[in-house]
Deep mutational scan, measured.
Amino acid sequence: NKFNKELQWATWEIFNLPNLNEEQVKAFIDSLRDDPSQSANLLAEAKKLNDAQA
């Protein structure tokens, strides 16, 4: 299933962003679980936040 692979990839990527704190990671993962179809958008937002906090 396409969404499942995207969800797994986005989850792994978010867990490995070095500049997000635990609460931010949890919030993004919760959002992914709530709406897996938004995984690409949520990953992009997480990466933006990660870069901003570098």
Score class of each variant (00 low, 15 high):
1 N>G: 08
1 N>W: 00
1 N>I: 05
1 N>F: 01
1 N>A: 02
2 K>G: 15
2 K>M: 15
3 F>E: 13
3 F>H: 12
3 F>M: 09
3 F>D: 13
4 N>W: 15
4 N>R: 04
5 K>A: 11
6 E>L: 14
6 E>R: 04
6 E>P: 04
7 L>K: 02
7 L>I: 11
7 L>P: 03
7 L>N: 03
7 L>F: 09
7 L>T: 05
8 Q>L: 13
8 Q>G: 05
8 Q>K: 05
9 W>P: 02
9 W>G: 04
10 A>R: 02
10 A>E: 02
11 T>R: 06
11 T>D: 03
11 T>H: 04
12 W>A: 07
13 E>K: 12
13 E>P: 01
14 I>R: 01
14 I>G: 01
14 I>F: 03
14 I>H: 02
14 I>K: 02
15 F>I: 09
16 N>K: 11
16 N>H: 13
16 N>R: 06
16 N>W: 05
17 L>W: 02
17 L>H: 02
18 P>E: 09
18 P>Y: 10
18 P>G: 10
18 P>H: 11
18 P>F: 10
19 N>M: 05
19 N>G: 04
19 N>V: 01
19 N>S: 07
20 L>W: 01
21 N>I: 08
21 N>V: 06
21 N>A: 08
21 N>Q: 08
22 E>V: 13
22 E>K: 12
23 E>K: 10
23 E>M: 09
23 E>Q: 11
24 Q>S: 02
24 Q>W: 02
25 V>I: 08
25 V>T: 07
25 V>G: 02
26 K>D: 05
26 K>M: 11
26 K>Y: 10
27 A>E: 07
28 F>V: 02
28 F>L: 04
29 I>D: 01
29 I>E: 02
29 I>P: 00
29 I>A: 03
29 I>W: 05
29 I>G: 02
30 D>F: 13
30 D>A: 14
30 D>I: 14
30 D>G: 11
31 S>F: 12
31 S>K: 11
32 L>F: 03
33 R>A: 14
33 R>K: 12
33 R>G: 08
34 D>L: 15
34 D>H: 10
34 D>R: 15
34 D>E: 13
34 D>W: 10
35 D>H: 09
35 D>E: 06
35 D>I: 04
35 D>Y: 07
35 D>T: 08
35 D>A: 07
36 P>H: 03
36 P>W: 05
36 P>V: 06
36 P>Q: 03
38 Q>M: 10
38 Q>D: 07
39 S>L: 06
39 S>G: 05
39 S>I: 11
39 S>N: 05
39 S>Y: 15
40 A>G: 08
40 A>K: 14
41 N>Y: 14
41 N>L: 13
41 N>A: 12
41 N>R: 14
41 N>H: 13
42 L>E: 01
42 L>T: 09
43 L>S: 02
43 L>V: 15
43 L>F: 04
43 L>Y: 05
43 L>R: 03
44 A>H: 09
44 A>R: 13
45 E>S: 11
46 A>S: 02
47 K>I: 07
48 K>T: 08
48 K>W: 07
48 K>Q: 12
48 K>L: 10
48 K>H: 08
48 K>V: 07
48 K>A: 10
49 L>E: 02
49 L>F: 05
49 L>Y: 04
49 L>W: 04
50 N>V: 01
50 N>S: 12
50 N>G: 02
50 N>L: 01
50 N>P: 00
51 D>R: 12
51 D>W: 09
51 D>H: 09
53 Q>H: 05
53 Q>K: 05
53 Q>D: 03
54 A>V: 10
54 A>I: 10
54 A>D: 08
54 A>F: 09
54 A>S: 10
